[in-house]
Nucleic acid binder design. Structure first.
Lengths: 238, 238
DNA sequence: AAGTGGTCTAGACCACTTC
DNA sequence: AAGTGGTCTAGACCACTTT
């Protein structure tokens, strides 16, 4: 039986084994359908999924070409801190360090992408793995967008967990960097002298309105962010 | 006209505005098709794409549910270094520091995931932006998998560029970390005292065979890895 | 003007999962 | 056993792009 999966696999194989090089035109849907003895819809689905993966480029009338691969991306999965720690078999711990409400100055307004003077909640927390410091969470929440944040007991539930489970967003931005540790980070994360921090900054919006900004800092020597991509040639069945 | 895109947008809107909360069951395809006055295939495509995005979870007989969102991932685009620099309007420079062939010892074998004793090429290069050091590329290439690497003029073309444009792979792994700078990195990247490096490590394989391992280190104070996600609610037309 | 992909349809059969 | 999604078909019309 010719399935869209089998067509997808064959085309992929042809690309990887250089039957078609980047930039080459592959046959049109009608021809492929005849070759494979299936309907055009089936071919269409296979090619469309390869185009979604960035492996093919398709244009009406111009046909379907193998994309000039600049290197595929890496997909980073950012989980709820608690799950990330528990899934690696360690015990999760959490401490709220600070909770305050304030109006946005020009610096904080820029961080969270809210207007100056907007009402914000500022939270600082420490997440622990097996009792050892794992991550400092330094967060701003827009109270205009999320007034219910005022009623949440952040001593019991981390803002990270509350937001991820309760607050939908439609757009996000992530920035990753390596920074020298501040004196406070050195102390709270119990860093060695000279040990840097791995920093993740994230902003989220819902329908154009800023929701939150967070800076997550991890001990540089203990933290690695890993992304594994599935093998494109691996057959689902065998 | 009811299109699969409009259905996708409506369902997404319903999820984001909490008409359905995470874990909730949404109507089955047949009912939705009747509601929208379209065929089941159209509904199917909409729901399937949302499932591919990780927003819905579907199981036969059990139906379609809103996924428990752990937070969507961040997609990192890793480009050819030269393009990355030139696209930001800076002048690109490149220097080959070292080129050698060797047999894999136990450490290098583990890095590249090749057997001990495998023939490897070792390359070290420096990439510059506007004359300032931007990245050290420290690379191992498996000569068993890529014997043609021996004939490439790496004085003229960086291994990064050669591999990305010429060598297909089917699986990859990325690791990002913050590390204290070594003495050599401090010198080559002209780092300030205490400035860490942002490190990207990447391995690639083709059909199970290891191709290459690379360690890319950037000045921590100058480098930021950024990932922006499209707004899910943004309408393609208006 | 003509070629190619994009999408929809109405129906069919099947595969998987729960009841 | 029955409900739900997964996939295929044959055909149709349309949208976009190039010639």
């Amino acid at each position: 039986m010719v399935t869209y999966r089998s067509i997808k696999a064959e085309i992929l194989d042809g690309i990887i084994r250089r039957r078609w090089a980047p930039g080459d035109l592959i046959p049109n849907e009608e021809d492929l359908a005849r070759d494979y003895g299936c309907s055009r819809s089936t071919v269409n689905r296979a090619l469309q999924e390869l185009a979604d993966l960035g492996i093919l480029e398709r244009r009406r009338k111009a046909g379907t070409r193998v994309a000039q691969r600049t290197s595929r991306g890496a997909l980073i999965q950012i989980q709820i801190v608690r799950n990330e720690i528990e899934q690696s078999g360690r015990r999760y711990g959490y401490v709220l360090l600070e909770r305050a409400e304030a109006w946005a100055g020009s610096e904080t307004a820029a961080l969270i992408d809210a207007p100056r003077g907007a009402a914000l909640m500022h939270l600082r927390c420490l997440h622990l793995a097996d009792g050892a410091p794992w991550q400092i969470e330094d967060r701003l929440i827009s109270l205009a967008a999320l007034p219910t944040a005022r009623e949440v007991d952040f001593e019991a539930l981390s803002p990270n967990e509350w937001l991820v489970t309760q607050v939908p967003y439609s757009r996000s931005e992530h920035i990753f960097s390596a920074e020298p540790a501040s004196a406070e980070e050195r102390e709270r994360l119990r860093l060695r002298p000279d040990e840097p921090v791995f920093v993740i900054e994230r902003r989220t919006w819902l329908a154009g309105q800023a929701l939150t900004y967070v800076r997550l800092s991890h001990p540089g020597l203990a933290y690695r962010m890993i992304s594994r991509e599935d093998d494109l040639l691996a057959a689902p069945e065998a």
